[in-house]
Each structure stands twice: as structure tokens, then as C-alpha cells.
């Protein structure tokens, strides 16, 4: 484990200690089997304590984990015959967003997702998964293609946000995102969105209008990063931890707020511990919702999509 998060340190340390005792026993320096059994029991309890009671801030860290599986990792396990397609036909190709056609359990689909890098070099190439307008316009181009050829659309959301840069503004970052929101509302094919890491604001939503929205257990989805919120609201970026709690950004919060359909449970300790297993859990969810959505008439699909968004929000009326 190269990257250890602060909150999981006790687990990692205990795990290392057990491994060491085991080594000593194997080398028959002394017999520590009894101690090992005791410690393993304690480890089991500790894991439950640490991972099953993760605080919002712990999940933020987990969602940002450098080893967290990315869109392309999941594509490899979940789809076959993935053919990546490039460019928006208007300006360029944005490596912060990948898209292409593939087969999902034999059914042709279009897959689109934000793409972070795995190391510094790749992160620079992929702009840390923060798209420019051309990224959103590539996505739109390929979603229109999916609509034309009646292929369901599956999107993976994993971005800190759309890139806040000069060129992005000049080329219409707002318009590119806005256009996707509106167009996604009208496609006559099922759209399934899965938040796999960070769901950062409008940049996430730009791939996020669909019939079913799922979140991996340790992913987040928010209107602004906890750091951004605390610096704006309380003029102190150091209160990010508190903001993470107040803003209600975890998968369970969003389920409770009726924004997402389901939380996809993660491997204990985070998706990166077993990518293959995690991918199979995502696959199951996609399979069942695709089956359900594919049987719907187009008009019903669009009507339900509208109702889904219409129902999000909470308000009251003034007593007169």
C-alpha cells in the first residue's frame, strides 16, 4: 500500500504487525499463533470500526485516493470491444474525458467518462480529469450518435470539476455544460450515470443527466468542493472537514436527499482494494437497470426522466 489515508492508519499498522508476527512464527523464531489469533480478531473489529463508520471527510479522502480505479479501469472489466473515439469536430480532443463504443454483456452501448491520470505525467496530459468545453462537446457528439443508433449511454463521473481556465471560458465552458444538460434530457435511449470518484459540481453534472444515477459508496457529489465551500462561507479553507459534513456530499446523503437511485457498496477499505470485484458490482447494477429501462417506451422514458428531476428539491410556502 503506497498511499495510506490518515483515518485508516490504525488498521494498516495492525495489519503490518500481524504480518510480522506471522513471519516470525514461520521462521520458527518463536510460536506466536495465539497472539496472532487475538490480533486478527482485534483487526476484524478495528476494520469494522474504521471502514464501516467512515466520516464524510474520510470518504472525501477515499474518493480522491490516488489508486482509486478510473473510468478506463472499469471499462476494461465491465465492457468488451471498447473502441475509444476522439474529438469534438469543432476544436480538439480532450483527454480529460474518454468516450467510445463498446459492448455490455453483448449489447452495443456508448460509454463516456471523466478520466484522471494515474501518475503526474498522465495527470498533466489528462488535465487531472478536468475537461474543457471540447470534452463536453465530444461527449455530446457521441451521445447524439448513440441516440441515432439506438444505443444506451453509460457515463462514469469522476472529476473535481470542469476546468476553470482562461481558454475554457473563451470557448464557452458554461454553454458546453448547459447544452449537455438539455440534450441529455431529450435522448430516446436509456442513460445510466455512475459516480465513481468525485462528482464535482457542473463539471460532473455535464455527464450526469440520466434515467438512473448511482454512486459508489465512497464517492462524493457536490455543488462545490468542501475546501471551496469553507473558504467562501466561512472565509477559511481549513474548515473543509466541517463543510464536508454540512454540505451533505456522501453517497448515503444523496440517497436520502432523493438525488440518486442507489448506493453501490464498495469493497471494505475502498474500491482500489479489489477493482475486479468492484467492477462486477457496478456491472450488476447496470445490467438490472438496463433491462428495466430498455423495456420502456420512449415517451415513458422521457416522461420519467423529467419527473425524476422535477421532484428534486425542497421548498415551503409562506403562511398568509
Amino acid at each position: 500500500m503506497k498511499h495510506i489515508l490518515e483515518f485508516e492508519k490504525p488498521v494498516i499498522e495492525l495489519r503490518e504487525k500481524i504480518a510480522e508476527l506471522r513471519r516470525m512464527t514461520e521462521n520458527s523464531e518463536m510460536d506466536l499463533s495465539e497472539e496472532i489469533i487475538t490480533l486478527e480478531k482485534r483487526l476484524e473489529k478495528l476494520e469494522v470500526d474504521v471502514y464501516d463508520r467512515m466520516q464524510p471527510w474520510d470518504r472525501v479522502q477515499m474518493a480522491r485516493h490516488p489508486e482509486r480505479p478510473t473510468t478506463l479501469d472499469y471499462i476494461e472489466y465491465i465492457f468488451s470491444d471498447f473502441l475509444e473515439l476522439h474529438g469534438d469536430r469543432l476544436y480538439g480532443d480532450d483527454a480529460a474525458l474518454v468516450a467510445g463504443i463498446a459492448k455490455f454483456q453483448g449489447t452495443p452501448v456508448t460509454v463516456i467518462g471523466h478520466q484522471r491520470g494515474k501518475d503526474t505525467k498522465e495527470n498533466i496530459r489528462r488535465n487531472f480529469g478536468m475537461p474543457h468545453p471540447e470534452g463536453y462537446r465530444k461527449a455530446l457528439r457521441l451521445m447524439k450518435q448513440a441516440d441515432k443508433f439506438n444505443r444506451p449511454i453509460i457515463t462514469f463521473i469522476d472529476t473535481k470539476g470542469a476546468y476553470p481556465g482562461k481558454a475554457a471560458e473563451e470557448r464557452g465552458q458554461s454553454e458546453a455544460i448547459a447544452r449537455n444538460l438539455m440534450e441529455m434530457a431529450g435522448f430516446n435511449v436509456p442513460i445510466i450515470c455512475v459516480v465513481i470518484g468525485e462528482g464535482g459540481s457542473g463539471g460532473a453534472l455535464g455527464l450526469g443527466i440520466g434515467d438512473r444515477i448511482y454512486m459508489l459508496e465512497n464517492s462524493t457529489y457536490s455543488v462545490i468542493s468542501p475546501e471551496g465551500a469553507s473558504s467562501i462561507l466561512w472565509k477559511d479553507a481549513g474548515l473543509a472537514q466541517q463543510a464536508a459534513e454540512s454540505m451533505k456530499i456522501t453517497s448515503y446523503d444523496l440517497k436520502e436527499l432523493n438525488v440518486i437511485d442507489e448506493v453501490i457498496p464498495e469493497v471494505r477499505g475502498g474500491a482500489h482494494r479489489d477493482v475486479e470485484y468492484q467492477a462486477s458490482e457496478i456491472e450488476k447494477v447496470i445490467a438490472s437497470s438496463l433491462k428495466e429501462l430498455s423495456s420502456m417506451e420512449n415517451s415513458q422514458l422521457l416522461e420519467e426522466r423529467f419527473n425524476k428531476y422535477k421532484s428534486i428539491g425542497d421548498y415551503a410556502f409562506l403562511d398568509l
Partner: peptide
């Protein structure tokens, strides 16, 4: 900001209606 992700989703709600 005080309505968090519910505010974000209003972008979706209004855009779906515009569609």
C-alpha cells in the same frame, strides 16, 4: 451553497424542462 447538491440539481431540473 446552503442547499448543496439540491442546488446543483436545479441546473438539471431547469434544463430538462427547457428540453
Amino acid at each position: 451553497m446552503q442547499e448543496g447538491v439540491l442546488s446543483l440539481m436545479q441546473m438539471g431540473k431547469t434544463s430538462v424542462a427547457l428540453q
